[in-house]
Write a protein that binds this DNA or RNA. Structure first.
Lengths: 227, 227
DNA sequence: CGTAAGATTGAATGGCCTCAAGGACAGTGG
DNA sequence: CCACTGTCCTTGAGGCCATTCAATCTTACG
């Protein structure tokens, strides 16, 4: 049914198996590699052989409905884990948006503590954090208006990967408008319109379509809150 | 800030500590009790001392936004676990809708495998199933119309707690319309209107406002699918 | 029987979507 | 260097679905 990509093959263009951490002696369950923008890490339905730790870059987790309607479940940033299985299979597609450095951990590390107790603990905490983050996302999806959604999204992204830019902070939103729309449960047109609305209000500035400068964080926070 | 309810005190009206499973000898980390409809199991922000296993009844997990807008994260049925912590605290409110029999497990059983390896594994699988179930819920919330949402909901509930009723299956939806609405990201009015719409189409019948008979499962399935 | 809470139904508004066109930008080849 | 092309983003106009506001009906229970 589904084609499971072979890691060794898939990362052919930039394979750099960096087994660097001195603390890890079990080579077989710790594989680092790079994956270029546009490549796919796994598909919904794939057998979950690994859980992946994002070291750099940006990944996107999506699910599609039969008719093509799509939901972006989450964006994975450095420090995040992706690929938590259920019944041994992946339940989302995972694509690379920005060239990523990824560490593959064997699934057994999650299910069997003895493989690597320290990693097992980290995976467990990551899974619990994931549950909590998804609950936040629920509030976003069904309790907030379009402008509240986008403002909240910009704040979270600015917080997680914003960088100083003059007296302000700017954030590179590498994903497409369509990704943001499907993440927030909106259309690209509404995302675009809301973005200009926030721009015209003076809360943000768009250096490019993807580089956003937060001019007035207070105003942005106000826009993110109900009322 | 938050008032943490004392279990021993809270279940005063029907406390029945049933330590029944022969396989479990560590009394301290296995406490069974009953909790009546309307009672609260824990609140958002409470320190997560326990994880709870639902043996019977119906629980509701909710989160509220500052201004009062509410989201029902999930309904917990027998066999479900509730109260997965993040950073050691609960991130939802948990209320009893139908008198419930509950088993409290110490949080340590989740974080420390050695406490009870068998339970640890079950908790882990439950957490992974939870992540997957929440992803389903995402699709529901942002990809489906009101009638698709309600039809999907009825199918899931009929599947999980439906009982034979003549030639059909009926299901007791003990929760209020407001709960269903906040679960699906709709208003009570829309839930009500959509319910009558499904009734008039012949897909379901309402014995009472809460007891639904699935007359035409094929039609209900069709209504749940996009297109 | 009376009251209150919940559920249903109706009418009108509005926020977001759909459909459609135009603009910005990068890559390509002449 | 500059059309050419494709992809993505923005903007506009109109329509629809779900909401809001409000009234009525039903149910539970003292």
């Amino acid at each position: 049914m589904y084609v499971t990509l072979d890691l060794a093959c898939d990362s052919s263009e930039a394979e750099t198996p960096e087994i660097t951490t001195a603390s890890n002696f079990r080579l077989a369950q710790h594989r680092s590699f790079r994956l270029a923008s546009g490549r796919r890490l796994f598909l919904e339905g794939d057998e979950a052989e690994n859980i992946y730790e994002v070291k750099s870059g940006l990944l996107r987790l999506t699910r599609v409905l039969e008719n093509g309607r799509r939901q972006v479940i989450s964006f994975a940033l450095p420090g995040d884990f992706v690929g938590f299985p259920d019944n041994g299979t992946h339940h989302t597609d995972c694509d690379v948006i920005v060239n990523a450095k990824i560490v593959a951990h064997r699934r057994a590390a999650l299910e069997n503590r003895s493989v690597d107790p320290e990693l097992h603990g980290r995976l467990l905490q990551a899974a619990l954090r994931e549950i909590s983050a998804m609950q936040d996302h629920f509030m976003m999806l069904s309790c907030k208006s379009a402008s509240e959604k986008l403002a909240s999204f910009l704040l979270v992204m600015a917080d997680r990967l914003g960088r100083p830019n003059g007296r302000h902070r700017s954030v590179e939103l590498a994903m497409r408008r369509a990704d943001i729309a499907d993440f927030l449960g909106l259309t690209i047109e509404t995302v675009s319109r809301t973005m200009t609305q926030l721009r015209k209000s003076g809360a943000i500035r768009l250096e490019t379509a993807h580089r956003i400068v937060v001019l007035d964080e207070v105003a942005l926070r106000a826009a993110a809150q109900p009322d």
